[in-house]
Every structure is written in C-alpha cells, then in structure tokens.
C-alpha cells in the first residue's frame, strides 16, 4: 500500500507527473500573462488558453524551410530544455542543471546563427549578450546556495523525508532571490530585457526563420522555460507548499508588472544594470551569510 508519505511518490511519481504537466502549466501562465496584461491596459484580451491555440495552429501549417541545420538545433533546444526541467524536478546537481539550461540557450543561438538571415543573426548576437548577462548572476546565486546548504545537490536544500530540518533558503539568501528576480525578464524574454526577440526591431530574433511545426516546438520549449524558471525560484521556500507556490506566483506577477511598466532597454544598459545591481545584491548577501556564519566550507 503506497501512502502519500511514501518517498517513491515524491521522488519518482510526482516529478514525472510535473514534467508532463510542465508545458501545460507554462502555457497557461503565458495565457494568464496575456490576459492580465490586457486587463491592465483596459482591454478584454485573448482567452487564457490562447497560447495552446497558437501552438496547435502552428502544427497545422505548412513548413517553409531554409536548411536542415537550424531545424536540428530547434529540436535540440526543446529537448535540452525538457532535459534540464527534468533534472530540476528529479533533484539533480544544481550546477549541472544550470549549465544544461545554458546549453539550451547555446542551441538556440546556434539555430539563429545557422541561417543566413540578418534578423536571426542580430538576434543570436543579442541572445548571446543576454546569456552573458544572466548566466554569471545565476551561477553566482547557485554558488551562494552551495555555501548555505553545503552542497550543489538540490536534496541538500530540502530532503524529502525530513523537510522541517532545514531552514528555508529565503531566510538566508533574500538578496540572492532578488538577483534572480532581476534576471527573470531575461529568462522569460520580457521587457525591459526582451532584447533578443525585440519583434518591432528585428522580427523575432533567432526564431525569425521558423515556420509551422518547428515554430510550435520552439514555443513549447518556451512553455517549459517558464515552468523551469519559476520552479527554480520555488526552491527558495521548499518547506511549505503554500509559501512556495506563493513565491512562484509573486515572481510571475513581478515579471508581468515589470513587463508592463518598462520599455525595452539597449544591450549596454541591460549589461550595466544587471551586473551592477546583481553583483551588489550578491555581494551584500554573501557578506550577510559570512558575518552571521551561516555558511558551510
């Protein structure tokens, strides 16, 4: 008889179910985002399931293809994002997860570079610059996690069997969480840092040349990304489901509000802002955990 406390449920069944649900959750979140943005602008807005209509429609369209390479990279991008989401759900090494998530960006960039289109070329260049901006912050945050928990393993943040034993990361790393909020618009491709897919300037950046089902696949990958990023933030309060989901919702709302009240920035402004504010937050937080002695060598 398997009960709800059985570790098998939490170690295998739950992550597997979540991995299947991830694109649905991600898509719904994007739908909510569009609805909410519309309401903020006093519009009716599209229905919440609009992202799924979009994807399904794309699967019913004709393919117009430039070459094979960029299609391969698009699928590789999707698979890598799914893989890193899976690794996150199944509690793998946080450092490896971060690098795998970075690999998905690399595939997207390679996809953009491997067609001779000025839009995807510029888009890829900008995508790389965005990666240059957010990846160091993300890795430093991971390093802080490791300092506090003593390990890169997610299990160290929260063991399945004894959740009450450890202190929530939020208490020790509040500023690191803010740094994550800072890079949230980059990862979710939202204003003010939606520089790579600035559709008014450079069509859709690296995904300009995709049509039909491959564009659909890239969109699904984006659903996964939304889920991944929010789940990552959820790690900051794993002890209590209500607070954990509240934290994710807060991050999501934060990104929507920021998206609506800011205009797109230039690349150099983005780099300067994120580096200065992000590094400052991290250093202050580091000083805090060093002074209070809440770190493990």
């Amino acid at each position: 008889m398997i009960t709800l406390d059985d570790p098998i449920i939490w170690k295998i069944a739950f992550p597997a179910v979540m991995l299947i649900l991830a694109p649905i959750i991600g898509g719904l979140l994007i739908g909510i985002d569009r609805k909410l943005t519309a309401r903020l602008q006093n519009r009716a807005g599209p229905p919440i399931v609009q992202p799924f209509y979009d994807v399904l429609k794309l699967f019913g369209k004709e393919d117009k293809i430039v070459n094979k390479t960029y299609l391969v990279f698009a699928v590789a991008y999707l698979l890598t994002v799914v893989l890193s989401t899976g690794l996150l759900l199944f509690h793998y090494d946080l450092l490896v997860i971060t690098f795998m998530f970075g690999l998905s960006f690399i595939f997207l960039v390679l996809a953009g570079y491997s067609v001779r289109s000025q839009f995807s070329y510029v888009g890829s260049n900008r995508e790389l610059l965005q990666m240059l901006t957010y990846e160091p912050i993300l890795l430093l945050v991971v390093f802080l996690d490791r300092l506090v928990t003593g390990s890169f393993q997610i299990d160290a943040i929260w063991s399945f069997t004894e959740p009450a034993k450890t202190e929530p990361l939020l208490y020790t790393l509040p500023l690191a969480l803010l740094a994550l909020f800072l890079i949230l618009p980059i990862q979710l491709r939202k204003s003010p840092y939606d520089i790579a897919e600035a559709h008014q300037e450079i069509a859709q950046g690296p995904v300009t040349e995709y049509t039909g089902k491959f564009l659909g696949l890239v969109t699904i990958a984006h659903f996964y990304e939304v889920f991944f990023v929010l789940w990552f933030i959820g790690l900051y309060f794993v002890q209590n489901w209500a607070v954990r989901i509240g934290l994710m919702a807060l991050a999501f709302l934060f990104s929507i509000v920021i998206d609506n009240v800011t205009a797109r920035l230039r690349v150099d402004q983005m780099i300067r802002q994120v580096y200065i504010i992000g590094l400052l937050l991290i250093i202050v937080n580091l000083a805090y955990i060093l002074i209070t002695g809440k770190w493990i060598a």
Binding site: V66, T69, L110, Y113, S114, R116, N125, L128
Partner: peptide, 12 residues
Amino acid sequence: SRWAGKLLATKP
C-alpha cells in the same frame, strides 16, 4: 558559438 554558427549557415 558564433564561429560554429557561421560555419553552419547555408543558403536554402
């Protein structure tokens, strides 16, 4: 990645 992408960019 810029270099790798360049190598792969073919015309249709």
